[in-house]
Amino acid sequence: MSKNKAIIYDAKQCQPIRQSDGYILFEPISVSIREGEWITLIGHNGSGKSTLARFIAGHQRAELAIKGRENRFNQEPFPIITQLTSQYLLGSTPFEDLIICYEQYGKASKDKSIEVEIDELLATLRLQHLKHVPMNHLSGGEKQLVAIAGAMLMDTKLIVLDEVTSMLSEDNKWHVCSLIRSLAQSHGIAVLWITQQLDELQANDTVWVMDKLELVYDGLAGQLFTSVEGEASEARKRSLEVPWSVRKSLELGLQAEQLQFNPYALAEVVKRNARTAT
């Protein structure tokens, strides 16, 4: 991630404490998110991943005492999407839902009509053929993409996606992951991606690891799983499962920035290396 990109969220030793009982939501953090950055937030159940993400998004702020300092783009909350799409989808069809989103949160478009903008967004997400299809006829992955399209209409700089693939089939999971990565890159939108499925990582992702309400790692995914001078990797130290494809990547001698996290990507690398060798 280029250091020249604008910072859209920044926190210095920031810690929220519930005023009613003094409960600490998480230990002090110092992080920044830059425009267009992809950050994958991982950690065991109960580690504080979702709490941290909602705090960064600007949600759940009532009755909190906040230590430290934070700055956010335009001082506006960032949208959050979870696997529970029923919380977000209000329209009877994708088009109706996106019209509702635009009317509630959308920013005025000077160059094109809202229907053209929606059509382009649906086309990018490969949902154009479902524009007027009843919402209850859509698959889980299609509903996730409609919800994400609604967030895109907010003209946001960051979208928080909290385990959006956890209830999807394997095929839908990779379809959704691929489209979201492509869409975020083309629009320059930062993504805070929360997951427990480590095969969704890519070597150059920024990774945050939460452990017992503390942010214990902030670095690249590839470096998280590689050893330095014979020491255990940070993933091993944090008792994180090492994906099969990462183990095979290391056996093949791939460097940190070349590690592959799922079998499909690893197969492509093996094929490419085989062609090069011949």
Rank of each mutant, 00 (worst) to 15 (best):
V133A: 07
V209F: 06
S30N: 04
G68K: 03
D205P: 10
G48D: 06
Y264L: 10
V209Y: 04
Q144I: 02
S227L: 08
R272L: 08
G46V: 12
D111E: 14
Q13H: 14
S249V: 05
C177D: 09
Y88M: 13
D21Q: 05
E103L: 08
L266S: 06
E234A: 13
G140S: 08
L198Q: 02
A274I: 09
I29S: 07
P16D: 03
Q128T: 05
D218M: 05
M154T: 08
R275T: 14
K49H: 13
R236E: 15
C14K: 02
T82G: 00
L84H: 15
H137L: 15
I42N: 03
R18E: 13
A184P: 01
S20D: 14
S2C: 01
S47T: 07
S113E: 10
L41T: 04
E76A: 13
I100Y: 01
N262M: 06
Q60M: 14
H175I: 09
K157P: 05
L224E: 14
L213N: 15
T124R: 11
Q15R: 14
L153E: 06
S109I: 11
S239P: 07
D211A: 12
G43L: 12
Q196V: 04
W193V: 00
H175R: 15
E170I: 13
Q255F: 03
A108F: 08
G68R: 04
L25S: 09
A151R: 08
L25G: 02
L220Y: 04
R34E: 01
L252Y: 10
S178A: 11
N262L: 05
N74Y: 09
H187V: 03
L252H: 05
A277I: 13
I24F: 04
D111Y: 08
T93E: 13
Q13A: 14
P77A: 10
T85R: 00
N204H: 15
D111T: 12
D211K: 15
D10N: 14
A267T: 08
S30P: 02
I39G: 06
C14V: 10
Q185T: 11
E234T: 05
N74D: 13
A149F: 00
P77Q: 10
Q144D: 02
P16Q: 06
L25Y: 01
Q223R: 07
E103W: 02
S245F: 07
L254N: 01
H187C: 06
L213A: 15
L145T: 08
N273M: 15
E96T: 04
R54A: 04
A235G: 13
I7Y: 00
L125S: 05
N204Y: 05
P79A: 00
V191M: 10
R61S: 12
F26R: 01
H132K: 12
M167V: 11
S169Y: 00
H59D: 11
L52W: 07
V242C: 09
L125Y: 05
E170H: 11
E70Q: 14
E103F: 01
R34G: 02
Q223T: 06
L224S: 11
T195K: 00
A190M: 11
V176F: 00
P134A: 06
E257P: 00
A6P: 06
